[in-house]
Simulated scan of single mutants.
Amino acid sequence: MSLLAVGTLAYDDVYTPFGEVKQIEAGSCTYIAMAATYFAQPVQLVSVIGGDYNDAFLADLERRGADLEGVEVIPDGKSFYWAGRYHDDMMGRDTLDTQLNVLADFDPKVPESYRNTDYVMLGNLTPSVQSRVIDQMAHRPKLIALDTMNFWMDVALDDLKEVLKRIDVLIINDEEARQLSGELSLLTAAAKIVEMGPKILIIKKGEHGALLFEEDKVFYAPALLLAKVVDPTGAGDTFAGGLVGYLAATDDLSFENLKRAVIYGSAMASFVVEDFGTRRMQNLDREQIDARVARFVELMNVSL
């Protein structure tokens, strides 16, 4: 099945202890599409770019199964830009520059051909923008997943709470879950967040894996121990793309399949951090993905 993804197509400058890159293609839509197209096609993108965006990179996204009809191009505008430097432990980072550029006036327009899509991934954007996308759907999708961040909890909490009532899956990290719920215990935090609307909650814990909550059921997926993490940028969006892409491909929302989707999302995220930007994602095949998933399964397998 197809998947609708809404978010950013951007340029990043990234500095880590393993090197640096400038003007590398990035953004939530980029990472979501790179991961999701390995499972579901087409991945219909809704975003905005300036006339400066790399045409060859866009053509490669299309070749992989991305549909760019919903990408608005502002010919005389500049694309969203972010620069950041990671700390030596790769756990924290400092933002050096953020330029919204064409994103500042982004008003998503969902093409008619996208409006019957059953699976929707709303990348990290203003909650009111996320709501406007849902407003444009011709029917209630089978699944709407949403990513958000601390910033929107600080400046747009009421709007965020409104959009949470309209979605099925919320994907956030542990710090965000604690802030949104006001609880330190992630179990208690999950119960409070589910009361806000989403039936399914996924809490990312970075190098410590991810937690899946649905009703009274809980699943924990460990993170894979990697020899080198080169660039963590986009890991969360890649996880989301792999997860929702797998769900769209299998069209199965049972808890058992949600667990599988978390593993596939984790596997995709484990690839993307091994190089800058989407470079590692561009050279994968399904055999490599399945082998990486098997490593996760082996890591969790125990007999007592």
Results as ranks from 00 to 15, higher is better:
Gly7Ile: 08
Ala10Ser: 15
Tyr11Ser: 02
Tyr11Lys: 01
Pro17Phe: 03
Phe18Thr: 10
Phe18Leu: 08
Glu20Arg: 10
Val21Trp: 02
Gly27Tyr: 01
Ser28Gly: 10
Cys29Ser: 15
Thr30Val: 06
Ile32Arg: 01
Ala33Glu: 02
Met34Arg: 06
Ala35His: 03
Ala35Ile: 07
Phe39Cys: 02
Gln41Arg: 11
Pro42Gly: 01
Pro42Ile: 04
Leu45His: 05
Val46Thr: 11
Ser47Arg: 07
Ser47Gln: 09
Tyr53His: 13
Leu58Phe: 01
Ala66Gln: 06
Glu69Ala: 14
Val73Thr: 14
Tyr81Trp: 04
Trp82Arg: 04
Trp82Ile: 13
His87Val: 05
His87Ser: 14
Asp88Trp: 07
Met91Val: 09
Gly92Asn: 07
Thr95His: 04
Asp97Trp: 08
Thr98Lys: 00
Leu100Ile: 06
Asn101His: 03
Ala104Gly: 05
Pro108Ala: 14
Lys109Met: 11
Glu112Leu: 09
Arg115Phe: 01
Asn116Asp: 14
Thr117Trp: 07
Leu122Cys: 10
Gly123Thr: 12
Asn124Val: 14
Leu125Ser: 11
Ser128Ala: 15
Ser131Ala: 12
Ile134Leu: 09
Asp135Ile: 00
Asp135Tyr: 05
Gln136Glu: 10
Gln136Asn: 03
Ala138Asn: 11
Ile144Pro: 13
Ala145Ser: 13
Ala145Met: 01
Ala145His: 02
Asn150Phe: 05
Asn150Ala: 15
Asp154Phe: 04
Ala156Phe: 05
Glu162Lys: 13
Val163Glu: 04
Val163Asn: 04
Asp168His: 15
Ile171Asp: 01
Glu175Ala: 05
Arg178Val: 11
Ser181Trp: 13
Gly182Glu: 04
Ala190Gly: 12
Met196His: 06
Met196Thr: 12
Gly197Thr: 11
Ile200Phe: 06
Ile203Ser: 03
Ile203Lys: 02
Lys204Phe: 02
Lys204Tyr: 03
Lys204Met: 01
Lys205Pro: 09
Leu211Asp: 12
Leu212Ser: 06
Phe213Thr: 09
Glu214Arg: 15
Asp216Ala: 15
Asp216Met: 14
Asp216Ile: 14
Lys217Ser: 13
Pro222His: 00
Leu226Arg: 07
Ala227Tyr: 10
Gly236Tyr: 03
Asp237Lys: 00
Ala240Met: 10
Gly241Met: 08
Leu243Ala: 08
Leu243Thr: 08
Ala249Thr: 01
Asp252Arg: 07
Leu253Pro: 10
Phe255His: 09
Arg260Leu: 00
Val262Cys: 07
Ser266Arg: 05
Ser270Lys: 13
Glu274Phe: 05
Thr278Leu: 02
Thr278Phe: 03
Arg279Ile: 08
Arg280Phe: 07
Gln282Ser: 12
Gln282Leu: 14
Arg286Gly: 00
Asp290Ile: 03
Arg292Ile: 12
Arg292Thr: 09
Met300Glu: 15
Val302Gln: 02
Val302Ser: 09
Ser303Met: 10
